[in-house]
Structure formats: C-alpha cells, structure tokens
Design a protein around this nucleic acid. Structure first.
Lengths: 143, 143
DNA sequence: GAGTAAATCGTAATGATTCTTAATAGATGA
DNA sequence: TCATCTATTAAGAATCATTACGATTTACTC
C-alpha cells in the first residue's frame, strides 16, 4: 500500500479528496508504524489548528473500513497503521513504546490444529510485543 | 483454582474476608468463563442493591494481581475469568457471545521461531475467537 | 468490646470514542 | 463561472468503561 493507492481507493469508493485526508494518509505512509488516534490528532493540529478530533476518528474508521489501515487494540486504545500487505494474511511484532512493527509471516492457525470441537471459529489474534532496539536503549538511560 | 484456594490466597496476602468478595469469587467459580465488569456488577446487584461499582472494579483488580483471575481485553473492555491453571502457560479459544472458553495447550512461541532481530520481546497474545455451539444455535434462530 | 486499618459507598473525574447539529467545502452540471 | 447538492468538518455534548476520592462502615486484633 502506498499513498497513491490509498487515495485511489478513496476515490473509487466515492469519498472526496480533502487535504486533511491526504495529510493523514501521508503521515501513515511516512511512519509505517502503529499510531494512536491522539498521535494523529497532534500531528495534524500542527498544521490545522483547531482541527476537530471527530474528523480524525471519522476518517480513521473510513480508512479502516476500506482496508487502507489495519488496526489493533493495545492497552484499551485502538492503534492504526498503514496496511503493509493487501495480499498476505500476517501478524505483527509490535514495539510497545513507539508502535514500530515487524511482520510475522507464519500464522499459528496454519501450523497447528486448534480443536474446533464445540466452537465455530471466526477469527484469531496473534501478536508479539516488545521494544525495538531504539526504544530499549532509550529506556535503559532512565534506569 | 477453586473457590477455597482463592479465598486462601486472599487471606495469605492480608486481604480481609468479606461476603462481597466471596460472592464475586463464587460467581467466577461457578461460571468458569470470561465476564465483563458489568456482568459481575449486575449479578452482584441482584443480591446487594446499591452496590458500588468501585467495589467491583477494585476487587477485580485485586483478584487479578493475586493471580486468582486471568484477564483479556475484547472490544475495548476487560474480561475476567477464574484462572484455569496456575501451572501451565496456555491460551484460549473464546466465545464472543457468552465468554465461554476452551484451553489451547500449544503456544505459537514454542512452535515456531519469531525473528527477534531488532526487538526485545516481552510478551505475546494468542487468542482464537468464535461462537460456542449454544450461542451459534441461538444466533441462527434470529436469522 | 474498643481501636485500627481495610473495605465499601456515593459520586465525581477521566480518557477514549461516538453522536448531533449546524456550518463549510468539494464535485457536478447548467 | 456559478449554483446546487451532498459529503465533510467543527464544536461540543453524550456515552461507555474505568479510576479516583472523601466519608462512612466493617472486619480483624488485642
């Protein structure tokens, strides 16, 4: 996924082009890591002072519905990142501090059988958490 | 884990015996499934009208700290269940409707290597979601 | 049974998110 | 280009789960 593709998807689905949407997507395209709504809000407010947070939330959910962003929930808040691959099912190793993430290509569901007895399975979540080298270094300095 | 063990753990750690605590734990001991704080509150209010939800939340977090309950986060709310095994690391298959759950003994972290390059790993989450046969049946009736 | 610390009550506060209504701004077609 | 229509945004209120707090009550210790 890149910025251009994302804007195309918006257009194809009848969503209008606005500078705010483009700037939000540019942020995700540059950062390629998990961001909380408030991170996006803060970044956007540096350019658009008085920006409503409703705008951020509404657009984040539009982007997510269209598959432009993928989300996860960490510590009771939703985090969003630019979809890394539209083709392959994959999981992530996520830095709990900065949201940087790394693909995990293997999926546990493929690798071992989960007994489905008595259940109709509809989804799963596999995430590995840690600290990237940079954040780990920064942490050590405070100890 | 059973009710008696749970009460023992409380005592050993200097927590007082109260009927409310015992009743909360009795509920978990009977249900053996994931419950949201509000489920617990509702159940308890049938016996203790005017029960403060502070009491529920505070006790849930005490129980969790002591390892009596295990928790997960689903749809932005915490869910709690009686710890099923204090000995083995395990995961769950969870019914999204009623919270009923089933052990998954295998852990993906044991079964395949996650490249740790550039990251210091501190944890992981693996959960499988679905509907138990009962809830699946109930769903069908409304369609 | 009295004293003390813990537990609970009642309610206010918080933080993330969603909703509502009115104003504004892209896209479309005369 | 201008008018119009509809999507988008602003502003703030509302909601939902959760945490915090001062006052009161209760469980355990002596």
């Amino acid at each position: 996924m890149n910025l251009h593709q994302a804007m195309e998807i918006l257009k194809e689905n009848g969503y209008k082009h606005t500078n705010k949407r483009q700037d939000m997507l540019t942020l995700f395209s540059n950062e390629k890591r998990y961001l909380a709504a408030k991170d996006v809000l803060e970044h956007m407010q540096s350019k658009y002072s008085g920006l409503s947070f409703d705008t951020i939330y509404r657009n984040l959910s539009v982007f997510t519905e269209l598959g432009i962003l993928e989300t996860t929930e960490l510590d009771g808040e939703k985090k969003f990142r630019f979809t890394c691959s539209t083709e392959h099912h994959h999981h992530h190793l996520i830095c709990l501090n900065c949201g940087k993430s790394k693909h995990i290509h293997e999926c546990p569901m493929d690798l071992f059988p989960v007994s489905k007895e008595g259940f109709k399975i509809v989804g799963h979540k596999f995430e590995v958490y840690g600290y990237c080298d940079k954040c780990d270094e920064d942490n050590k300095q405070y100890k």
